[in-house]
Design a protein around this nucleic acid. Structure first.
Length: 948
RNA sequence: GCGGGUAUGAUGGAAUUGGUAGACAUGCUAGACUUAGGAUCUAGUGCUUAACGGCGUGGGGGUUCGACUCCCUCUACCCGCACCA
């Protein structure tokens, strides 16, 4: 009996949906388990074969957990707001709300075709107002809180106001950006506007002027990860820095916790390293340098307070607040010239150009330890946003300072003697301090500690910690996102909407082009913007807003009075296993952790971290095929050449034109090529080349006619250029899983993707291997259907084969080693076929074992074996050690560590028995050649080694 | 430059705590059955040697009775960050 995948799959998809077998409730006595995939942004292209890799893995894991007694939450939803969705909608001339709905429908269908066991009753989309109501609510909560460093958590801003009224802002230990210090009386005398501005320096969501990545062509501000090499990731347009008032989230308040808590979660080392790197914690001291002849002091951050005696000049960022004021009239011109030079440089140039540049501003600071006057410079190597935007320069122990001092002829004083550390580089924290008064003779680490103490004693500064992490820009001048739930009054004072005013719906607009000067498209809707003498914010939130808490919404997706009921949240707790791409390593995961911690501070979630265990699946890449076209035309006609010919002739003046991979023969192999038929398809697809010349080693093809070089010579064989890269519409190499499923069935597709290799590893899609999995499934199907199954007791051999597989598959699922689980199934079926097994009990258990991997075929077999309830609700097989016990064990006999023979021993044999027997063996005697045995090693159940 | 990772047959990849390197699959070779086959089945397949044997997990060194596995060192590639004071 043949297996008809299309028919079987259609039947069970319907059945599972009708019986809602994957639906779960938090009202359950079973232990919970939460398996989550990073929800996708539903693009217009649909899923390609790369997307399902993670979904299949998490699905197998979910199904396994479900069959081993857990109440498994396994939901799916749509990250539907954001720039790509908006751009796509514009492109196809639809409103993003329509195109999103259309796309997610397609995604859902494809996912269902894959047999993924999502509880679709929990489907959510970030662009639904019932969802973003709560995104907006969390934002208002952030707005209404500050971070208290004594409590080490977020506290309502109303508490802070109460404290300001009684004690000003000096006592409260809050994370803030406030520069001014005020008393309770001063606070009370502030105007509403002043109070507002003061509080903005404390709120976890606040507005400030910032430099942002501005893209003129897209008319919007871009996130750092949307900018690549100074160009927008989408479209490749230039990006410049522009000052704008924006909403920010004070994620920096959580820097320490975001860093520390990485220890508590099961993420890959590389991912943790990326997050650690992003947070960028460094320990050191902040030190205040007085400015000669001025009231100003310049604060610097340094990780090397021990080298302060070698600080011979200072450098400020060109954008530093003091530059204009401190510059002397004599230097004004050169400083202005320098600043305009810095501004003129694009991001790309800045990164490419490592030239040392700077300008002296004419002013001097006093080194508080040497009491000498040191010149103040500005230089672009000092960044405005890191530390205090100013440094003390120690040219003897910092490469950049050294290069700067050398170029501009500034003093260099050696303060660290590195003669005891010959391999150490300039900036290594190694050596003995010299020329530094009271710390002379100390090793560097001790000197750092000592200096921190002295700096604090003398009131010159304090030991401090600095982070690279910056507050998150949360404004986008776009349409397709959550409107900010705030209002401005006539004075510009911001108030957040209250819960009963939410959601603030995104108004409909058909004109999505940016407003003037980069305003959001919403700015055009004056009726919406102006309400009761107040105005609304016209910027919208970034895509990361909706994805920062969606995992919580899945716990209770239809709740209209809370983001999720406390009952549901207490039950589901957190995500046990989170599977997704590494491209979200920074932005999404960082913000999600931040929001989760904020909600934890408020007592609204029971855990400190949202994702206990996280796995980054690799990317499945696609082969890209190109035709080589010479730049030079022949009589106005394009000329294409076989890749082999181009290489042979060493031609360089050609371009690679990506072509649809289905035109190419032997796609995916090294020698992929075009036949006449393929060329015909190419010309139909690209009519501009209909008269083009196609030359290969055997002959020339043009205008539908092939002329071989020799009469009756071989047919067209135009070799293409092949590369491996991302599957993408623009490279015409997207492989649609639906096509693969049509041909091989969903189970085969699932198992093949798993069989490709470890889940974390990237690999190119290669259709050649899929036949092996297809054959396996047919063999398994044959095992079930070819002969009637018998009810006899299984033989010892059958049980051993089965239970070996049960043990291995259970272990492999635990460790997400699905590739080896698949090969275990292959081995098991091969062995059972060798044993000519038709035992019902054995094959039933094998079927259950296979169910998470091949949900359709196993379900069908289960039914054929007479079951009426779904196999996916049955109990997963567990192995019995009894059946795995071996009577005899085969030992490799090694001599000096090299295998020279094999011998079987009863599993009960003692090492002494074995030693005696081995010594008497003929082949052993031969190898000994009368030499003495120096050592005899028996590793029980493993091997024997004789040392001579 | 800093941080993380990877390196095993023709190919994808296997290998508890160090214990038979190359499981499973693809490809290839030969054969069987076929009008035919992207069907099915059988056997073989790391390199080398006539053979005994020798060599073999990116290179070099070390620890060990024994190293893909542990240590040192070098190289190549991939990913992230990048003038981070």
């Amino acid at each position: 009996m043949d297996y008809k995948s299309g028919q079987v799959e259609a039947e069970w998809k319907k059945n599972w949906q009708e019986n809602a077998i994957y639906q779960v409730s938090h009202q359950s006595d079973k232990p919970k388990y939460y398996v989550l995939d990073m929800f996708p942004y539903p693009s217009g292209a649909g899923l390609h074969v790369g997307h399902p890799l993670g979904y299949i893995a998490s699905d197998i894991y979910s199904r396994h957990k479900r069959m081993t007694g857990y109440n498994v939450l396994h939901p799916m939803g749509w990250d539907a707001f954001g720039l790509p969705a908006e751009e796509y909608a514009k492109q196809i001339g639809m409103h993003p709300s329509e195109s999103s709905t259309m796309n997610l429908g397609r995604y859902k269908e494809q996912m269902t075709n894959l047999g993924l066991s999502f509880d679709w009753s929990r489907e959510i989309a970030t662009c639904d107002k019932s969802y973003y109501k709560w995104t907006q609510w969390i934002f208002t909560e952030l707005f209404n809180h500050y971070y208290d460093l004594t409590e080490d958590k977020a506290i309502p801003i109303t508490d802070l106001v109460a404290r300001f009224e009684t004690e000003g802002n000096q006592v409260v230990n809050a994370f803030h950006a406030a520069k001014a210090v005020f008393t309770a009386d001063e606070w009370k005398n502030f105007s509403a506007k002043q109070k507002q501005e003061m509080l903005a320096d404390y709120r976890l969501a606040y507005r400030k002027v910032g430099f942002v990545n501005w893209c003129e062509e897209l008319g919007t501000v871009l996130a750092n990860d949307q900018v690549k090499d100074g160009l927008s990731e989408r479209g490749g347009h230039p990006v410049v820095q522009k000052a704008m008032t924006q909403w920010y989230l004070r994620i920096t308040a959580y820097a320490e916790r975001l860093l520390d808590d990485l220890h508590t979660i099961e993420w890959s080392d590389s991912l943790k390293a990326i997050q650690r790197n992003w947070i960028g914690r460094s320990e050191g001291a902040s030190v205040v340098f007085p400015v000669d002849g001025s009231d100003h002091t310049i604060e610097v951050f340094t990780t090397r307070p021990d080298t302060i005696f070698g600080a011979t000049y200072m450098v400020l960022a060109p954008e530093h607040d003091f530059v204009a004021e401190l510059t002397t009239p004599e230097e004004k011109e050169s400083v202005e010239t320098y600043i305009s030079y810095v501004k003129s440089k694009s991001e790309v140039e800045r990164m490419a150009d490592k030239e040392v540049t700077g300008a002296f501003i004419g002013a001097y600071a006093i080194n508080p330890f040497t009491n000498t006057k040191i010149p103040i410079w500005i230089g672009e190597y000092v960044l405005k946003d890191y530390g205090t935007g100013a440094i003390m320069a120690v040219p003897s122990d910092d490469d950049r300072d050294n290069a700067f001092a050398t170029k501009f002829g500034l003093d260099i004083i050696d303060v660290v003697d590195k003669t005891n550390y010959p391999g150490a580089s300039l900036s290594d924290k190694l050596g003995i301090i010299i020329n530094s008064d009271f710390i002379n003779g100390l090793e560097v680490p001790a000197a750092i500690t000592k200096m921190c103490e002295v700096i604090e004693e003398r009131g010159l500064g304090k030991a401090s910690i600095n982070y690279k992490l910056r507050d998150a820009n949360f404004s986008r001048q776009r349409y397709w996102g959550e409107p900010f739930p705030v209002q401005y009054d006539a004075d510009g004072i911001v108030t957040a909407l209250t819960l009963d005013e939410l959601p603030l719906e995104l108004p409909h607009s058909d004109d999505l082009s940016p407003g003037k000067a980069g305003e959001s498209p919403l700015a055009r809707l004056t009726d919406w913007v102006n309400v009761d003498g107040k105005t609304r914010e016209t910027d919208v939130m970034p895509a990361v807003a909706g994805s920062s808490w969606y995992f919580l919404r899945f716990m209770d997706p239809n709740n209209d009075t809370e983001f999720a009921s406390q009952e549901a949240v207490r039950y589901w707790q957190d995500v046990d296993l989170y599977v997704g791409g590494a491209e979200h390593a920074v932005a999404h995961l960082m913000y999600a952790r931040f929001w989760h911690k904020f909600l934890f501070d408020k007592g609204l979630v029971p855990t400190n971290e949202p994702f206990k265990r996280l796995v980054n699946q690799g990317m499945i890449q696609g082969g890209i095929e190109y035709l080589g076209m010479l730049r030079e035309k022949v009589d106005g006609v394009s000329r294409f050449l076989c890749a082999g010919l181009i290489e042979k002739k060493g031609l360089t003046d050609f371009v690679k034109i990506p072509v649809k991979i289905e035109f190419v023969k032997d796609y995916g192999s090294d020698g992929s090529y075009f036949t006449q038929n393929g060329l015909q398809q190419f010309i139909e697809w690209r009519p501009e080349y209909k008269n083009a010349i196609f030359e290969c080693a055997n002959g020339v093809y043009q205008n539908g006619v092939y002329t071989p070089h020799q009469e009756g010579g071989p047919d067209t064989h135009l070799i293409t250029f092949s590369e491996v890269g991302k599957m993408s519409k623009s490279k015409f190499n997207v492989i649609n899983p639906d096509d693969v499923i049509d041909r091989y069935g969903a189970d085969c597709f699932r198992m093949y993707e798993m069989f490709l290799g470890p889940i974390q590893q990237s690999k190119p899609w290669d259709t050649q291997g899929i036949d092996g999995v297809y054959k396996f499934l047919n063999k398994y199907w044959g095992l079930v259907t070819d002969n009637p199954l018998t009810d006899e007791n299984p033989t010892k051999d059958e049980l051993k084969v089965l239970h070996t597989a049960i043990k291995k598959v259970n272990e492999d699922i635990q460790s997400l080693s699905f590739n080896t689980a698949v090969s275990t199934f292959m081995i098991c079926v091969n062995e059972l076929r060798k044993l000519k097994s038709k035992n019902k009990q054995v094959i039933e258990e094998l079927t259950q074992l296979l169910a998470p991997f091949a949900p359709f075929m196993s379900e069908e077999c289960w039914k054929l074996m007479g079951h009426t309830e779904s196999i996916h609700l049955s109990d997963y097989p567990q192995h019995n050690e009894e059946y795995l016990v071996e009577d005899t064990i085969e030992y490799p006999i090694c001599i000096n560590g090299k295998k020279r023979g094999l011998a079987s021993f009863a599993s009960a044999a003692t090492p002494a028995d074995i030693e005696a027997e081995v010594k008497s063996m003929e082949f052993v005697q031969k190898w000994l050649e009368g030499k003495e045995i120096r050592k005899f090693i028996v590793v029980p159940n493993r091997m024997v080694n004789i040392v001579i």
